[in-house]
């Protein structure tokens, strides 16, 4: 049994959360700084898509 298989499944939520928090945080900071209100949404969407890409790299790619 490969030890990483189960670990990847458990870390999905962690990846999604950290992607959203980091890039959403960057967007929030930009909003706060530039007095706008659309960077937050953009940052969150960017974080989600980057996280899902990362999860695909970790899980989807290994089992070809």
């Amino acid at each position: 049994m490969k030890p990483n298989d189960d670990g990847a499944a458990w870390s999905i939520v962690g990846y999604l959360l950290s992607g959203m928090l980091f890039w959403g945080g960057v967007g929030w900071a930009l909003d706060h700084w530039l007095k706008t209100h659309y960077f937050l949404l953009g940052g969150l969407l960017l974080g989600v898509s980057a996280s899902i890409y990362l999860i695909w790299l970790r899980i989807g790619r290994n089992s070809k």
Partner: peptide
């Protein structure tokens, strides 16, 4: 895009 997420995952989120 990915490196900040990895660092945040390993050192903060986990």
């Amino acid at each position: 895009l990915l490196t900040p997420i990895e660092i945040a995952t390993y050192f903060i989120t986990r």
